[in-house]
Write a protein that binds this DNA or RNA. Structure first.
Length: 888
RNA sequence: GGGCGCAUAGCUCAUCUGGUUCAGAGCACCUGCCUUACAAGCAGGGGGUCCGCGGUUCGAACCCGUGUGCGCCCA
């Protein structure tokens, strides 16, 4: 059968993927083999594949495919995350298009729509992963909001509550006025923006009963004592309950015991003294708004200040503000500045740069807000998680993230886990309307507990209502490695005992704390054991300008288009070519092109092989090539293993790429390739088949499709003999001397080709070459390869200089090449003299080193030996050059 | 403001415990080739004061200090 010049990748991708599925190669059930387990970082159920997923999942697939070939029971668990906020946004949008407002429907109706949305659009991403070749056990696909996983979430909540690790409290939270929910600290992005700093005058009075004369205000406050405070948020003036200055600030010492009057609303507030104040900033006086700033809140607690919350949940001003009620905070900011100015309260305005928090999900400016929320106490829980990363029981790769991790875990703050949404796990807390509550799995249990805890309060008319809020999505994903193996439902189940702890986790450093740290915490809390042994942290995929690739920026190519264009193997290769662990990767489509070209190269190597006709009578004269190649192949395998064990995936792939392209295609195949019109001997043919097959096995984890396709073209295969489950090649010993000989022969061939090239001689013209060497036997061994590859007549050996030839040094040997072209004596001389100068310098530096007693005393013997060899070689080269010079 | 990290060829990155014959790849670039597997290719080539300065060492791209520039995290 004639093989096409270019392989149709889409066709083989579909063919092999469905074949692998049919054969259930990705299916894993516990057995006597050693398990190798990865749980996928569950993508948002709303998600579509982006470049970050491509990178991440390619790495996981490489690891899992290799483990599978190595005979381990490889299990890659896929699934999706219910992603409260993201999904809620999608569903609300969908309802809007249907003309329905969330406010107008019940929670039950809303959830029905949400589930419908999920069934219809959710999980597309998993289908997309198949296109990439991901070898997940799809029978194990999980979803964080499915029944079993939800039950685990609720049970964990109740358990932590009962242990006293979950509490309810008024806390300053990051409020997202657009999403109408609290968000965690990690979901707040601080951006530097240009702001204005407003200097506002507050009148000073002696007692809380004092009032300010309106005429004093109108006259620009010239006749009354006042204090100026600086603020970037003038609208919060309406919630001020104190003015604070530093106790050591000479400017304000006289204000002890006095009061300030809040402009516009004339609220009289105390002047307090606290060393929290930065004397240098602004005027050294701070307006204190406990309800709307975390630092102010802390000051408020310390000095027992009144807390006035002037904002509604949607960011408009509340009744408490007295003025501008119902108007948006940013509109009010503009208005109040005008009003302050008009009334003479505004002293001046300055431009400053400051950091403002934005919601990661909605991009709204975050409002610090006092709110009743649920929290997880983190300090004690975090301890084993910190310890076991620091002692490398769990390894972070690369380990530079240990520092960051340590810092975060040592300064861990309590985790706000309630979210004001409907899509998610509803908090299992029940309230009686009188300020009492209980935590329980069901209403029935809640009533039971309630009647026990609050004896006498329960009457026939009593009702308990469940908390309206749901839990933070991470509160379910932190259980993922346990939950996917039903470790909560069946703590002693077969799956959890077999697969847990898992081996490798591959994820992005951005969620090291969000997710990875919390999984570790949950692992120690609920299994007394780490959830995984290694965490491979990928980089961020950026575009060529260094911008993070994202849908919002529109700078990310569609992965499926890329697959169509460059093949799944091509993309996988492209992603991995430039992505050492933990380093960002600047994505360039050219890399995918390079990957695709590589598949083409391999395909054409196959076409070459399949085009050969075999002559069973013919004897092989390629033994030296086999010997060199076999040793080099073993060395490659060793190097690959080294790179793998250090999780240097990029390096592994590049080594393989170079080996296949250069050593196999450019050298080995050219060595054994029969001259045009001739047949190949059986030994060479079979050896080549074996090498090719082995290389495809090594390549399979990276390029599953092309390797499987080639595997089946190389030989007739029995049913069930697929590369996907073929045994991964074992490393055998090798002789570095044989490899060195082969490499030298390559150098010799290149050197002759170079002379040919520089003299403009055609590759078709056979040249005559004389060689001066101490290793005649090596040349004799490889003679026919050299003659063939460099197109020269039989090699001549010489012990003297050869007249009228171009000479070139290869290691310590000297080649004299008859070019038939007269040499330019002057330029040759110049070249030789330059080279001699270099070697003279080289020799003297080595001699200096060897003559240094401290060196010979301190350096390891093999280093000294090597220096001596360097010296001898250098001298021999210099001598050779001197001879050349003398001849000219 | 606090913490972490980075700086090597035009670009993106290697150099794994300080020691191979002037630091290696890929891309890009230059020269010559449509040579019966592959132009998605072949054969060659040029290109580096390893950010500056100081130190430790027999020996530094690598260790220490310092300066400069850049990135990330936290407040």
């Amino acid at each position: 059968m004639e093989l096409p010049k270019i392989l149709d990748h889409t066709q083989i991708e579909e063919k092999w993927y469905s074949h692998w599925l049919d054969k259930k190669y990705f299916r894993s059930v516990p057995d006597e083999r050693e398990p190798y387990t990865i749980v996928i970082p569950p993508p948002n159920v709303t998600g579509v594949l982006h470049m970050g997923h491509m990178l991440n999942n390619t790495i996981q697939d490489v690891l899992i495919r290799k483990a599978r070939m190595q005979g381990k029971n490889a299990c890659w668990v896929p699934g999706t995350d219910h992603a409260s906020i993201a999904t809620e946004a999608k569903v609300v949008n969908m309802l809007k298009e249907m003309g329905i407002s969330k406010k107008d429907i019940s929670r039950e109706e809303y959830m029905k729509h949400a589930w419908e949305w999920k069934e219809k659009y959710g999980g597309i991403i998993l289908k997309q992963l198949e296109k990439l070749g991901a070898s997940c056990d799809w029978d194990r696909t999980r979803f964080t909001m499915e029944d079993d996983l939800s039950e685990a979430v609720i049970d964990v909540f109740i358990d932590l509550f009962n242990k006293g690790n979950i509490y309810r409290g008024v806390r300053m939270v990051n409020w997202d006025p657009k999403g109408l929910t609290a968000v965690s600290d990690e979901e707040v992005i601080h951006k530097e923006v240009n702001s204005k700093l407003y200097y506002v005058k507050y009148c000073i009075v002696d007692s809380p009963q004092s009032t300010v004369h309106s005429e004093a205000v109108d006259s620009g406050l010239s006749s009354v004592d006042y204090i100026t405070v600086a603020t970037t948020r003038p609208e919060t003036i309406l919630g001020d309950t104190a003015v604070c200055v530093h106790p050591n600030d000479e400017r304000y010492k006289h204000l002890k015991g006095k009061f300030a009057v809040v402009p516009l609303i004339n609220r009289v507030v105390p002047i307090i003294f606290d060393d929290y104040i930065d004397i240098e900033f602004g005027t050294g006086a701070l307006k204190v708004t406990p309800a709307h700033d975390i630092n102010d809140y802390n000051l408020g607690i310390k000095h027992h200040l009144e807390i006035i919350d002037i904002l509604n949940d949607d960011g408009t001003l509340s009744e408490k503000a007295e003025l501008y009620v119902g108007e948006d905070r940013f509109a009010v900011r503009k208005k109040i500045v005008v009003d302050l100015e008009e009334k003479g309260y505004l002293e001046k305005t300055e431009e400053i740069k400051n950091k403002v928090g934005y919601s990661e999900r909605t991009d709204a400016v975050i409002e610090p807000k006092l709110s009743m929320q649920w929290f997880v106490k983190m300090e004690q829980l975090a301890k084993p998680a910190l310890e076991n990363v620091m002692n490398d029981n769990i390894k972070l790769i690369p380990d530079k993230f240990k520092n960051t991790y340590k810092y975060w875990m040592e300064n861990v703050r309590d985790w706000c886990i309630s979210r004001q949404l409907w899509w998610g796990h509803r908090i299992p807390a029940w309230y009686d309307g009188k300020g009492n509550y209980v935590v329980a799995k069901t209403e029935g249990e809640a009533i039971k507990i309630y009647t026990e805890n609050f004896r006498g309060l329960w009457t026939v008319d009593s009702r308990l209502t469940q908390d309206e809020d749901v839990l933070d999505t991470w509160f379910s994903s932190w259980l993922w490695p346990i939950a996917v193996f039903d470790g909560f439902k069946y703590p002693d189940g077969k799956d959890i005992n077999y697969y847990y702890p898992t081996n490798d986790l591959v994820t992005a450093p951005e969620i090291l704390f969000f997710w990875v740290a919390r999984m570790i915490i949950a692992g120690y809390e609920y299994r007394k054991e780490k959830p995984f042994s290694n965490v491979y942290l990928t980089g961020i995929v950026r575009d060529k300008k260094g911008k993070k690739m994202s849908k919002q920026l529109g700078n990310s190519p569609d992965p499926l288009d890329l697959i169509k264009k460059y093949s799944a193997d091509g993309i996988r290769t492209g992603m991995l070519f430039s992505s050492p662990a933990g380093n960002d990767l600047l994505f360039d489509e050219k890399l995918c092109e390079q990957g695709r070209n590589f598949t083409n190269k391999i395909w054409n190597a196959l076409r070459l092989l399949k085009g050969w006709e075999i002559d069973v009578e013919k004897k092989s004269n390629n033994e030296p090539a086999f010997l060199w190649f076999e040793n080099k192949l073993e060395q490659l395998k060793e190097n690959l293993e080294k790179s793998y064990s250090g999780y240097r995936m990029s390096e592994t792939l590049i080594d393989l790429y170079k080996f296949i392209w250069d050593d196999f295609c450019s050298w080995y195949l050219e060595y054994v390739k029969p001259p045009f019109g001739e047949k190949i001997d059986l030994v060479s043919y079979n050896k080549t088949l074996v090498y090719f097959e082995e290389l495809m096995k090594l390549l399979h984890p990276f390029m599953p499709f092309i390797s499987e396709e080639i595997y089946h073209h190389l030989k007739e295969r029995k049913e069930g003999d697929d590369i996907c489950i073929a045994p991964y090649p074992k490393i055998n010993s090798f002789d570095v001397r044989i490899i060195a000989e082969g490499e030298k022969i390559k150098e010799v061939i290149s050197a002759i080709r170079d002379v040919r090239n520089k003299n403009g001689l055609s590759p078709k013209q056979t040249l005559k070459v004389f060689i001066h060497t101490n290793e005649i036997s090596v040349y004799q061994k490889f003679a026919n390869l050299i003659e063939k590859m460099a197109n020269i007549s039989a090699i001549n050996f010489t012990s003297t200089e050869v007249e009228n030839t171009s000479s070139v040094l290869v290691q310590t040997d000297k080649l004299f090449i008859e070019t038939g072209i007269a040499l330019d004596a002057e330029s040759e001389k110049k070249k030789i003299v330059e080279e001699m100068d270099y070697y003279k310098g080289f020799i003297s530096s080595v001699e200096k080193k060897l003559n240094n007693e401290r060196f010979t005393q301190n350096a390891k013997p093999e280093i000294i030996e090597n220096e001596q060899k360097k010296l001898a070689d250098g001298k021999s080269k210099l001598k050779s050059l001197e001879n050349s010079l003398a001849k000219l």
